[in-house]
Simulated scan of single mutants.
Amino acid sequence: MQTFPSEYGSMIKCVKNTLLTEGISKGLYAGTVPALVCNIAENSILFLSYGLCQKFIQKVNGISNVNQLTTLNNACAGSLASFFASLAICPTELIKCKLQALHETNGKVNISDSASSKIVRHILKSEGIMGLYRGFVPTIAREMPGYFFFFGGYEGSRNLLASPGQNKDEIGLWKTIISGGVGGALFWSTTYPIDVAKSRIQIYNSGESLISLIMKISKNEGFLTLYHGLTPTLVRTIPATAALFVTYEYSKN
């Protein structure tokens, strides 16, 4: 929906057409392997870095305990941590985007096989190692502000949902789920246009700058095209980030 808005006007139409033309495994689950690699790598590095960045923010501000960090402190720690996660997710997101768009780009993008390994070899052969980092600047531009709102929204929601005199770590399962969903929704609501541009840059091997592409899309296709596909993204991310933070908190405990 991000890259081919004229072909897929709605989420339902996109699901229906994908099922009819590509089926389940090659259609709805295209790019599953790199998506799993991407998410596992991103979250592993992100939450490791988040803890370290929290300690860094704590020392810089002379705070005695990590638990005393403010919502703003945690948001800044999350934003800083996302830089390190971006190093891992850019190549895997690139492969995922190309796999998901194989049907639509037939004849437009020079990739003839849907296997992840063959796409990687094709990129390395034609562009070198830096080809795997096409779209890295847009990835950074999405991740750093996005995770500011992601962790800020999560920690802020936990503080708001805590009862008077209650520690935010004691709010329980359902309030943690709500807080995680809020963090995910804020991430994508604030950074979605950047992700649209990133997807197009990676799929079409574009060398165009992020700002110029966003301006071109807005001028030629309309401003709302920059938010085309936001609904399925939110449908996906709210339960996903809710589960992510619940797993994080209970694993930590």
Rank of each mutant, 00 (worst) to 15 (best):
S64R: 12
N65Q: 12
N73C: 02
F56Y: 14
A77E: 02
N74C: 14
S64M: 09
I57T: 10
E42R: 07
L48Y: 14
I57H: 08
V60Q: 09
G78Y: 09
L48V: 13
L52E: 10
A75Q: 10
K59N: 10
N74L: 07
N43S: 07
T70M: 13
A41F: 05
N61I: 00
I40M: 10
G51Y: 13
L72F: 14
A77R: 01
V60A: 07
K55T: 08
N73L: 04
C76P: 00
L69M: 03
K55N: 09
Y50R: 02
S64G: 04
A41C: 08
I45D: 02
G51M: 12
L69Y: 07
N74S: 10
N74D: 11
N61K: 15
N61D: 08
I40A: 11
N65I: 02
C76E: 09
S44D: 06
S44V: 15
T70S: 15
A77M: 00
I40F: 12
N74Q: 14
G62K: 01
N43A: 03
I45R: 02
A77V: 02
V60K: 12
G62T: 05
N67T: 04
L48P: 00
Q58I: 01
T70G: 14
V66C: 07
Q58D: 06
I63E: 07
E42Q: 14
L52G: 14
N61G: 06
N43E: 08
F56P: 03
A75K: 12
L52V: 11
F56G: 04
L48R: 04
S44H: 09
S49T: 10
K55R: 08
F47L: 11
F56R: 10
N43L: 12
T70N: 11
G62Q: 05
L72K: 09
